[in-house]
């Protein structure tokens, strides 16, 4: 079992996340795509940790999880406050600021 496959998988997941952020319309889905990107990074880190034979990568993955959790708190608060006013979580509706 070569660890490289995990790196490829992580890269694919990262790309899916990045494309999702760019094409999806619902703020919650966009946010889930960001989380997917963060988790693909975790997979990359753990795989490199295995390849390099150091534990740093696994430790970093813990930090990433904690930061992602903090980001969820802030992000959902912002999305909720907008949703309660507009009754919609579509990011296309948030178009008052332009040009």
């Amino acid at each position: 079992m070569t660890p490289t496959y995990y790196l490829v998988l992580a890269a694919i997941l990262f790309t899916i996340g990045a494309v999702g952020v760019l094409v999806r319309r619902n703020a919650i889905v966009v946010f889930m795509c960001v989380e997917l990107m963060l988790n693909s990074v975790n997979l990359t880190l753990v795989t490199f940790s295995r390849i390099n034979g150091t534990l740093d990568g696994q430790i970093i993955a813990f930090f990433v999880m904690v930061v992602a959790a903090a980001e969820v708190v802030v992000g959902l608060a912002i999305i909720m406050s907008i949703f309660r006013t507009r009754r919609s979580a579509s990011i296309d509706d948030a178009n008052l600021l332009k040009y």
């Binding site: 996340g17 990107m37 963060l38 990074v41 990359t44 990568g57 970093i60 990433v64 992000g75």
Partner: peptide
């Protein structure tokens, strides 16, 4: 901001590798 910090983080992971 969350989108680009994911990019920063992926860069970190690749440099760690």
């Amino acid at each position: 901001g969350a989108f680009t910090s994911a990019f920063f983080l992926y860069g970190l992971a690749l440099l760690y590798g």
